[in-house]
């Protein structure tokens, strides 16, 4: 049963991912990416990471994709030539790389690839996923957390600097 759920999610994810790369219209690509995000969130729920699933939907689907669609609409893009001349080479290269990766995984067992049925995750036992992540975030991982807040500050100011429109020649900004 668990396998069935996995294959459903995985199948849709791969399908929509291919559509993102292959479709001609950027709006359609963004929308298939949206479907992919929802299914990735579903995958997270099966892996007992409910908080991350919620965050995935809120941030990726709710913020990032909306921003992409907004810019696509703002720039009013036309449909155009899709691929570089080297499409065939690139696709072949991708296939070769994938084949190599599968061979590597299959030939020499990863330390963990044999871990499966035994590992029912024991982390989120008494405490929910949200609480455990929250505890970690504000204690052990405080340093990256603070740096992340600075990242957002830089991104905000940078975005304003690059795209603010119609400024007159004045001394103050």
């Amino acid at each position: 049963m668990a396998n069935l759920i996995f294959f459903y999610f995985a199948g849709i994810i791969v399908l929509t991912a291919t559509l993102v790369v292959a479709l001609r219209n950027p709006v359609y690509s963004a929308l298939s990416l949206l479907v992919m995000f929802f299914h990735v969130a579903g995958l997270y729920v099966t892996l007992h990471a409910e908080f991350l699933a919620a965050i995935q939907i809120i941030i990726y689907a709710g913020a990032i994709l909306v921003l992409y669609l907004f810019v696509v609409m703002l720039l009013n893009l036309k449909r155009e030539e899709r691929f570089h001349q080297q499409t065939l080479t690139a696709a072949l290269l991708g296939l070769v790389l994938f084949g190599e990766a599968v061979l590597l995984l299959a030939s020499r067992p990863l330390r963990l690839s044999s871990m499966s049925a035994s590992s029912e995750p024991n982390v989120a036992s008494a405490v929910g996923n949200t609480e455990s992540i929250g505890e970690l975030l504000y204690s052990t991982y405080l340093f990256p957390f603070e740096v992340a807040s600075l990242i957002l500050l830089v991104a905000m100011i940078g975005a304003v600097i690059l795209s603010k429109k119609g400024l007159l020649e004045s001394k103050s900004s």
Binding site: Y141, F143, P144, V147, I151, V154, G158, I161, L162
Partner: peptide, 23 residues
Amino acid sequence: LLSVFVTLEFSTFGFYVLVAYLR
């Protein structure tokens, strides 16, 4: 590795904006 990732991206974001500064 987490700190490496986060701090690397942090410093690079500043540069993305700086390189494109001359609008």
